[in-house]
Nucleic acid binder design. Sequence first.
DNA 1: AATAGTTACTCTGCATGCAACCCGGAGCCG
DNA 2: CGGCTCCGGGTTGCATGCAGAGTAACTATT
Lengths: 249, 249
Amino acid sequence: MTLSQNLTAALRLRELILDGDLPGGTRVSEIPLSERLGVSRTPLRLALGQLQHEGLLEALPGGGFAVRLFTRDQVMDAIDLRGLLEGAAARLAAERRRGPDELEAIHGCVRQLDLLFDTGRLESENFERYVALNERFHALLIAGAGSEAITGAYERALALPFASPSAFVLLQADLPGSQRTMYVAQRQHRDLLDAITHGEGARAEALAREHARLARENLDLALESEERLARLPGAGLIDRAGSPLEDAA
Amino acid sequence: MTLSQNLTAALRLRELILDGDLPGGTRVSEIPLSERLGVSRTPLRLALGQLQHEGLLEALPGGGFAVRLFTRDQVMDAIDLRGLLEGAAARLAAERRRGPDELEAIHGCVRQLDLLFDTGRLESENFERYVALNERFHALLIAGAGSEAITGAYERALALPFASPSAFVLLQADLPGSQRTMYVAQRQHRDLLDAITHGEGARAEALAREHARLARENLDLALESEERLARLPGAGLIDRAGSPLEDAA
DNA sequence: AATAGTTACTCTGCATGCAACCCGGAGCCG
DNA sequence: CGGCTCCGGGTTGCATGCAGAGTAACTATT
């Protein structure tokens, strides 16, 4: 199956940005980029508009686009927004739930996560599986709300890569106390699901918000060293002025 | 100043949709539309992509776009999302506030609204002013949070016209008990600002959410008769299957 | 030496032409 | 009489050519 030029352009361009090939602040010129991606300028322009709406690009006053730069505080706010939406989704899931089997999928997801922890320490080969299950948990949580409005806002919030629920998981491999953090996170997963199961909306909302706040902590840890930051998806979008990295220089 | 073709296309197309010239479900074809709007197909395609991201259009499987249709429940969810975001903004505004003069603008806005009510009943010529002040209040509320993430999500949520804070104000002119509803709303404005001023984040959040719920009530009132619904911006986007209107037919 | 003016160039934005695809209908065969 | 195939109109998606705006460099003048 041959993908449309528009889609390939958007996917490849997003890849370039997230991989850091186009660092934050870079001006994106159409002609060189169209040659680099192998697509014409017309579908590329469509893709540029898309990524602008996703928040990865910003329009320049004289025309054209540049890769966006995010300050630490903006990233924090994006993380909080994710927590806010997940909290609302959790509350709705708790309050709206119809049948008892509706939660079967997410229960299974949490059980599989538990199994992963029971096998001992999370080593590198398990990390991929953890990331997949973690993303699945959060996706099921959002879907469980049954609110298209929330789903849409959530997807848009995740367009910022470091706001994604698994953004810092890969980083945690060599963070101090990473195992403990992940135990806490898994405990929150279980409690969150428990709250939803018993229809405790307010508790579910509070837990989801608090769960997202783990990412705030991890972001500041990531900003402490260049090598840590490099593991973050979309690290090139973060404006390091005023961060601990910059202060040490 | 001559606007770009892309922008004019987007603005005029949105206007067509919201005015009901392109009712929900209509397929939008590029060529007739480009002639109707007086722009070429290239900038029009850009505008189509934009409106798709805004949620007013949906991509058809075989290519092309159609005007989206929203069910009552989807509209309700969109209203709740607005309340959620306003609640978060109110809480942040209460918790983050730096100087005391930061709230001067919104205090002035509420004072002007109070004046409007003190002059007696809100008649038609005052309604425009009320709408303007009401929108200003909500915009200041969001801006007061100082979170770009929330601002972005809010703007996207407002792309659905009936989710806007003033969507039902014009409707209230001939609703039963409209004056009382607006008194309640204004009381909520004052209480909300009071909570923010005193740094009461949780109270501010709860009030903002409850304030948005007035719109839920108004939506169901609007769905009760065709003539009421016609006053709603973007009424043509609402799927009336299963609504009281349909049941009466 | 600094600044203002000018010129040339690069880039974006737009229009149009072309090809591929999809949908509809008619005709043919089973 | 029904289903399948083939054909035609229409529509979308894409590439390219062109014009205008913005920019940067260079020169001339103060």
